[in-house]
Each structure stands twice: as C-alpha cells, then as structure tokens.
Design a protein around this nucleic acid. Structure first.
Lengths: 242, 242
DNA sequence: CGGCGTGTTGATGTATGTCAAGCGGAGTGG
DNA sequence: CCACTCCGCTTGACATACATCAACACGCCG
C-alpha cells in the first residue's frame, strides 16, 4: 500500500506516485537518492506534478518539505514589500528547492512552475532526522548562512537605481557591524569608493555623488570613510525602491 | 612547544600565535571552534596577521587552508581574463574563507586584507579528515554546488552592458541543458522575456532588442522561445566584455 | 614643501528605462 | 473552420540615469 508520507501540507499538489529511487531516470545524479541510500528509514519518495504557473510553495509558508526537480523548470523568487517580484534563480532537473528555509522553518522564497514539472518531495521531518544523524549543527548553520548571503547579494545587485543600491549597501554594512556587537549608527568603512562601486556595479564617481546626495537629504553623514547613519528608516525605504 | 601545523604553504604570512580557541574573544560564535570541539585531534589553531593590502591567497593557488576572520576586513574577488577584478564579497570577523575551493582543490577567488586583520587557519588536510568523518560526500557536493552557483549569479548580474548579461545568460542556459544531457546548441527557454529581464536586472524591451541584435549579428537564432546557438565562442567573448 | 592616492565635482555622451503602438500566435467561442 | 481576443513579444520615440573623461581638492607621507 502506498502512503503519502507528507500529509496534509502537500494536499494542494497533484500526487503522482511513490516510487523507488533506483528506478528513477535521474538516480545516478540525484543528491536526494544518495541521501536516502545512506539511511534505512525511507525506501520510497513521493513525487508530484505541477502544471504551468502552479505554485510549489509561497514565501512564508511553513517549511514542510524539500523538493528536487525531476523534470520541467521552476522559477524561484521573492516578493518585496512594495509588491514587485525579484527572481532569484531558474531551476532545472536535479536542482533542490527549499534549503533557504532550513534556518527559519519557513520558505524564504516562492517557487512556481514555468512549465509542467515533476518534483520529488522529502518531508522536512525526515530530512531533519537524517541530517541530525549525519551532520553536526554548526555545519548546517554554515550552509544556511551561505545560502542567505547569496540571497542578500542578489537583492543588492539587482536593484536598478544607484541610490537604492547604495542605501542597501549601507544598511547591510550597518547590520554587519551590529552583528559584531559594534554600533550600527556610526562605523568606519574599510573599502574605497572604487571597491564599493565595483561591488555594486557602479562607477566610483556615482558612488561618490550618491553619497553626497544622501548626505544632503540628511540620511547619513559621511566624513571620508566614516559613516553616521542618521535616518535609518529612510535608508531602508530607499533600499527597497529598486 | 608550539608547532606551525600548516607548514610551508603559510610561510608568506606573518605568524601570530597558536592558541586555544576557548580563550578567543569570538569563541561563542565561531563555527571553526565548534568544529574543533567535535574532534579530539586538534587542540590549538594557528593565527596570522595580515597588513593592509596583503593577500591571504590568490585565485588558482592550491587550496591549503581555510581561514576564519578574527578581526579586520577582507575583500574577496575574482579576476576576469581581460584583467579587471570583480568583488564578490566583503568579509568581516566570523566569516569563513576558502570554502569555494573545496570542490576543485584550489582557491576559486582571491582574498586581500582591506585593513590590518587577524585570521585563524585550519589546514585543508585537517579539515578534510574531520569532514570525511562527519559528513557524507553528497552533502559536501551539495554545499559546494551552492557556493559555485552563488559565484555564477554575481558574475551574471554585475556585468554592466545588457549584451554581456544576455550572452552570459544564454551560455549559462546552454550549460544547464548540456548538464542534463540535452543539446546545448538548440533548446527551448521556459521563461518569458519579462522573467529574463527581471532576473538580469533589465527591462523586457531591452532583452527583446538585445536578442534581435544578437540575431542580426548571427550569434544566435531566436524563434519565440526557441534558441539556436550559432556562434558560441562569440557569445562567450561578449559575455566577458562586462 | 611636493607628490601621491583617494575622493569630489562638473560637463558631456550613451545605454537603457519608459511609454506607446502594433504584430503574431495560441486559445476560445461561435 | 473561422473570427475574436488576449497575451507575449517586438519595435519606435523619447527621457534619463549613469558612465566616462577631466579637473581639482584634500589628507597623508616622505
């Protein structure tokens, strides 16, 4: 008898089958198959069918499963609070989905099918159990941190206006310093305008101009590389304006 | 007696000390310290001092150690074949360096100090031994793949000219399909021009125009979403022109 | 004091965004 | 099977944000 191991969370998806990985066409290259091979607990995985434009999950949903794409194509995106979407990645067969939620217990992005697609699901609970058995916590943290940094970087780079990029960059730096226990209101940048420009995809002159503009608006005070954040909410506001 | 466990590879760095992690100011938040706590083999780590503008390692160097930043700031960058540099990230205390080389055995990027900095080093050999003990290979592959994808994304987004972004995007897609065993010369895009534009930080009209331009130059043939790569070298060439 | 690196500011050109109109394929309903 | 509509795509005209080039100001160091 075949049982849907994933339970209610997956009800909105069209159930395809529970089958042995050994029979899957992608068995040789599948990380999940290798995962399953290393544990005696799971012998089958459930797979689901997605129609074009059907969501696999939404950002903020409780993290219930990780998915691996068997066929088709899936778009991974986040929605900014002003409503517009930012595509993070296009995923193809063999790619894994949902890892970005491991830290927070909820999906950090949304996933939608670009065409009819098939995915294998591995329930979070199973994954956690296996992972806990295999991998120490610090390493999970390491991997998770790297993933979230990736998201931050894309968000930083894909904003269109220089002002938004710079504002985002400054807030990012403030966060960094805060996480180190330093002040997030006043800090010293360690890199040149050239470096900032290179990093953000802007000319150093544009960095300079934008910083003086932000200063004239009273959002920050710049004194060479010394930054004083005066109006953090305003900066965050602008950082979102992409 | 204190021994420099890392050997000759680190000779160019100024040796600071070999000390117990328990005494380190960042002990509580250090992933390496947690790593070391999980193995009986290592009791001390070596730390090094970097002056401003001193390289920690260069892209292509043999991967000899991973580093964790204790103080200061470090810039992580790659150099394109046309010579100009692309900054991937700015790293601060607590960040770890060198993971991007785990797959290939050599550093995938260069690291240089932006200010006087202190780093702890953990030799690759030690790290591998510990990792092999703790983590199955498929998971290392997973983490490594994610890191390399991050690099790809940044490279894609930070090119300045639309033509370079689109060319890079097309080659990226071709690689994807190739890795799936499909043709990398003729394939079907699964996403709209809008999606491509969103992903690359361009207006969909610009995507459209650039594609027709590439077509007129004879590099590709577009027929709706069907792509035929005609002159792959030329596309790669343009993808680098940032 | 003079030179150098870094940052600022100004003038100008250009790539790309924006707005708008039209085209063609795919799907729908008659 | 044909017309109709809708949506994605293309193309054009125009506006603009940014890159580029260039001159200059400032702090730093010899």
């Amino acid at each position: 008898m075949i049982v849907n191991l994933l339970g209610k969370a997956m009800k909105h998806l069209k159930y395809a089958e529970a089958s042995k990985c050994e029979r899957c066409i992608r068995y040789q290259n599948c990380v999940v198959a290798q995962l399953l091979a290393s544990t005696p607990y799971i012998k089958t995985v459930n797979s689901y069918l997605l129609s074009t434009h059907e969501h696999l999950y939404h950002a903020g949903d409780e993290l219930s499963a990780l998915y691996i794409i068997k066929s088709g194509a899936i778009k991974n995106y986040v929605t900014h609070n002003d409503g517009d979407e930012q595509i993070l990645n296009f995923l193809i067969p063999g790619d894994i989905l949902g890892l970005d939620g491991l830290g927070t217990q909820q999906y950090g992005s949304s996933a939608i099918a670009l065409q009819t697609s098939a995915v294998c699901a591995i329930s979070l609970q199973q994954f956690r159990n296996i992972l806990a058995e295999l991998v120490p916590g610090w390493l999970i943290k390491l991997a998770t941190d790297n993933l979230s940094k990736q998201g931050r970087n894309i968000a930083l780079l894909n904003k269109k206006k220089a002002k938004a990029r710079i504002a985002a960059f400054l807030m990012d730096m403030a966060d960094n310093y805060k996480s180190l226990g330093c002040s997030d209101k006043n800090f010293e940048l360690s890199m040149s305008r050239d470096d900032i420009g290179n990093y953000l995809g802007l000319a150093s002159e544009t960095v300079s101009r934008t910083l003086t503009q932000l200063q004239q608006e009273g959002s920050v005070k710049m004194e060479r590389r010394n930054v004083t954040i005066i109006n953090a909410p305003h900066l965050s506001e602008m950082a979102q304006h992409r």
